[in-house]
């Protein structure tokens, strides 16, 4: 029994490598996309704002699973074939980028106008004002919402099992079917809980660090 648990855990751990990779790639690029999107949305360029509004409307208003199917099964119809991992990564980045765009936009807009004015009369230019005054204050304000998304992403990552990517959940399911045992699912649940807990802890630390000034 103990040997079995160790064996299955090892197998599921292998699957979780894909989950980790997907998580990292998505986290890095969707946050970047979200910052760019938010800056675009608060810019005074109507064309850019329109495009970004359409983008967030579509990707926040349709199921992630549909977007995943679209990237993996739909795009080949148009002659674009993606391997499972790139298809999943692309979908997740664009989807989470849409959420982060809105979160960061809200955060930036919550910074009072007086901060911009103080920076301006001191001679800071737009780039300096954003990077040194506005964004650092925004980070603090968006931490709770970002933390939620970070945990959602752990759970959403399991969706990639449906396009045949051998992630944590899929490894567990394969074991369940093969061994006719419920233990792999329990192990998978524990894995997810551990990952989520680590993320929650990291964000708590961050929030604590940022709470020094208020």
């Amino acid at each position: 029994m103990f040997d079995y648990i160790v064996n299955v855990s090892g197998y599921i751990l292998e699957g979780s490598l894909i989950t980790f990779q997907l998580y990292l790639v998505t986290a890095v690029f969707s946050v970047g996309l979200g910052i760019a999107g938010a800056l675009g949305k608060i810019s005074k360029i109507p064309f850019l704002q329109a495009i970004l509004s359409f983008y967030t409307w579509v990707f926040r208003g349709t199921p992630l699973l549909l977007q995943l199917f679209f990237a993996y099964y739909g795009l080949p119809v148009l002659g674009i074939t993606l391997q499972p991992f790139p298809a999943a990564a692309l979908t997740f980045i664009i989807n989470y980028g849409a959420y982060f765009t809105e979160i960061f936009r809200g955060g930036i807009e919550s910074i009072p106008e007086g901060q911009y004015e103080a920076a301006e009369v001191l001679g800071l230019n737009y780039r300096q004002t954003m990077s040194r005054i506005i964004i650092p204050q925004t980070v603090k304000r968006v931490l709770p919402a970002t933390s939620n998304e970070a945990i959602n992403l752990v759970k959403d990552s399991a969706l990639v099992a449906v396009i045949g990517l051998g992630d944590l959940l899929r490894s567990a399911k394969v074991s369940v079917t093969r061994d006719f045992s419920i233990i792999p699912f329990i192990i998978a649940a524990i894995f997810y809980l551990v990952i989520s807990s680590i993320i929650v802890t990291v964000f708590r630390k961050l929030e604590k660090k940022y709470s020094v000034y208020e």
Partner: peptide, 18 residues
């Protein structure tokens, strides 16, 4: 020319994170 002037606001507008 604006840089020759400093301004103080009613609401202070200090940078809270600094």
């Amino acid at each position: 020319a604006y840089r020759k002037m400093g301004m103080v606001f009613q609401g202070f507008n200090l940078f809270p994170h600094k």
